[in-house]
C-alpha cells in the first residue's frame, strides 16, 4: 500500500523550558502519522496545537519522548537535511514586498540551490509543477503583497511543494479565510496528500470541515493528551461526543457532525414531507423549540404536499402559513 508510517511519536512531552521552570503543555503523546493521509489536529486555544507542530517541525526541543521521522530521530537531522524532509506553512503573515509569486515559490528550492541561491532549469520546472498543482500559475508574475489571503495561503502551499518534502505541516492554514476558501484549501490538501503520497498534518479550528475532510483526526485537550483516529471511529466510540460538546453544542452521531443546541423551552410536533419538516425543525430549533415527528405536543405543524404549513393547536381552527417567516410569526416567535 502507499500508506506508510512517516512519523512515529513515542511518549512525547511538549512545552517550554525556561531557566528555572519547565512548563509542560502536553505529555504522553504516542501515535504515528502516515503518508497519503490528511491528518487534522483539533483542539481548543491553549491546548498546545502550535507547540506540538513547532516541536514536530524541530523549531523547539521536545521535553521528553521521541520523534522519529522516516525512521530517523528528529534530533539527528541536520538543518539542511531536515529542510528536505519537512515543509511548513505558518500562521505568521510575512511582510514581503516586491517579490513575485514565482520567486516566493522558488524560495522553496533553497535547500537544493547553491551558494547564490540561483535556480537551475530543473528547479524552475519543479517550481512550475508546484504552482500547477496548486492552481496558481496565472498568478506567477503577481507581487505577493497584492494577493488575497486565500491566494497567499496557496502560494505558501506551493512553496512547500517546491520544497519536495514528504511531510508538510500547516499551522491553521484555514484561519482568516472565508468559508469557500477554507473548503478549497482543505480539498486541495486532501488531494495533494492522496495523489502525491504526502504526509500532511495541519491544525485547525474548523471542526465541521475537519470532520468531513480529514482522513484522520488528532484531538488535543488541555491535560488530556492526544486521542487519534478516523473521524468516523471517533464519532462512533463517543470520543467526539465528549470532546467538544458543552452547553449549546451537541454531537449528532448520525451525521457525525456537531450541531448548535439551544436550550428548549417548548415542543412542537412535525409531520409531512421530510425536507420541509427538516427545514421547519431547523428554524424552530433556532428559536428554542424542539420539533420533530417523535415529539409529543398539543401543537402540530403539518407540511403540505403543495407547499406551506398547516398549524393546528389543540381544538382551535387550523391556520395556514405559506413561508417559513409566516409560520414563525403565526407561532408568535
Amino acid at each position: 500500500m502507499k500508506h506508510t508510517d512517516t512519523i512515529a511519536i513515542k511518549d512525547l512531552a511538549i512545552g517550554y523550558s525556561g531557566k528555572n521552570s519547565v512548563k509542560v503543555v502536553a505529555k504522553g503523546i504516542t501515535d504515528t502519522l502516515r503518508s497519503g493521509y490528511l491528518t487534522c489536529l483539533l483542539g481548543e486555544n491553549g491546548a498546545g496545537k502550535s507547540t506540538l507542530l513547532r516541536t514536530l517541525a524541530g523549531f523547539q526541543p521536545a521535553l521528553g519522548g521521541e520523534i522519529k521521522i522516516m525512521g530517523k530521530s528528529l534530533k539527528q537531522y541536520r538543518e539542511r537535511e531536515l529542510a528536505t524532509v519537512i515543509g511548513v506553512v505558518l500562521t505568521e503573515r510575512t511582510s514581503l514586498q516586491n517579490m513575485t509569486v514565482e520567486e516566493l515559490v522558488g524560495m522553496g528550492r533553497s535547500p537544493y540551490t547553491g551558494f547564490w541561491g540561483r535556480l537551475s532549469a530543473g528547479d524552475r520546472e519543479k517550481v512550475d509543477y508546484a504552482m500547477h498543482q496548486v492552481g496558481i500559475q496565472p498568478l506567477a508574475g503577481r507581487m505577493v503583497q497584492n494577493l488575497s489571503d486565500g491566494e497567499r495561503q496557496k502560494v505558501m502551499i506551493a512553496k512547500a511543494l517546491a520544497q519536495e518534502t514528504p511531510v508538510i505541516f500547516l499551522d491553521e492554514p484555514t484561519a482568516f479565510l472565508d468559508y469557500p476558501s477554507k473548503v478549497e484549501i482543505l480539498h486541495l490538501l486532501h488531494r495533494l496528500a492522496a495523489e502525491m503520497s504526502k504526509t500532511i498534518f495541519l491544525s485547525t479550528h474548523d471542526l465541521e470541515l475537519a470532520l468531513q475532510m480529514a482522513d484522520r483526526l488528532w484531538l488535543m485537550a488541555r491535560g488530556r493528551g492526544v486521542v487519534a483516529g478516523t473521524p468516523e471511529d471517533l464519532a462512533m466510540d463517543g470520543t467526539l461526543d465528549g470532546f467538544f460538546t458543552r452547553k449549546g453544542v451537541a454531537f449528532e452521531k448520525v451525521t457525525g457532525l456537531y450541531r448548535v443546541e439551544p436550550e428548549y423551552h417548548d415542543k412542537i410536533r412535525l409531520k409531512g414531507d421530510a425536507t420541509a419538516c427538516a427545514m421547519a425543525a431547523k428554524a424552530l430549533r433556532r428559536n428554542g423549540i424542539l420539533a420533530g415527528d417523535d415529539v409529543e405536543s398539543d401543537v402540530t405543524v403539518e407540511a403540505l404536499p403543495a407547499g406551506g404549513y398547516k398549524i393546528s393547536k389543540g381544538g382551535a381552527n387550523a391556520t395556514l402559513a405559506v413561508t417559513m417567516s409566516e409560520l414563525l410569526e403565526l407561532l408568535q416567535l
Partner: peptide, 23 residues
C-alpha cells in the same frame, strides 16, 4: 556580497527561513 542567499531567506521571516535549512 556572499550573504545574498541568507538575506533572501531572512526576508521570509524566522520560521520559514529556518524550515528552509537556515540557522
Amino acid at each position: 556580497m556572499f550573504l545574498v542567499k541568507i538575506l533572501n531567506l531572512l526576508l521570509l521571516g524566522d520560521g520559514y527561513a529556518r524550515n528552509l535549512g537556515l540557522n
